[in-house]
Amino acid sequence: MHSEKTKHDFEPKIIAFVCTWCTYAGADLAGTSRMQYPANVRVLKFPCTGRIDPVFILKAFQQGADGVLVSGCHPGDCHYIAGNFHARRRFAAFRKLLEFVGVDLERLQFSWVSAAEGGKWVEVVTELTEKVRNMGPMTEFKELALEEQWSGTIDTPELKEAYNAI
């Protein structure tokens, strides 16, 4: 049954932030249905997409993720009544911010995958993996992270002044 596997030069790291009620269960269903998808994704379970702080996305990119997926219940299906609506609103604003700081938004995907949509989970993960693979590694944030592990020297007069004023 083993299909011939194509070797790629670059295997992207994809981090998926999912809610436990819909998308996590959908991913479980993909498993129980023995569907196949690329092994690049690592799933982090949250009770609700409403819990997902945008900072986690930044953190994921800093830690070397090449693509991030956020997925939860379809609008109206939220186990916690409205968490996914809050998430949707939050991420709509956050995308703009990411774009502003120069992250290619193609690396960040939002989707709704229900507990019954094992197939959709496979589709979403496969598509994102392929897309990000073609885009190559995400280096900007890693570099930025390194830069920000700064020496602690305050090198501009303004910062110095501010520091002294504290």
Partner: peptide, 28 residues
């Protein structure tokens, strides 16, 4: 127990037990 409050709190002063920032950042 959805944790929407935690992701919303501007001063990070509310935490969802079992899904704290510490736990999640540790995983990332």
């Amino acid at each position: 127990g959805c944790g929407t409050c935690q992701a919303t709190c501007p001063s990070k002063s509310v935490e969802l037990d079992g899904y704290t920032d510490e736990q999640i950042v540790a995983m990332i």
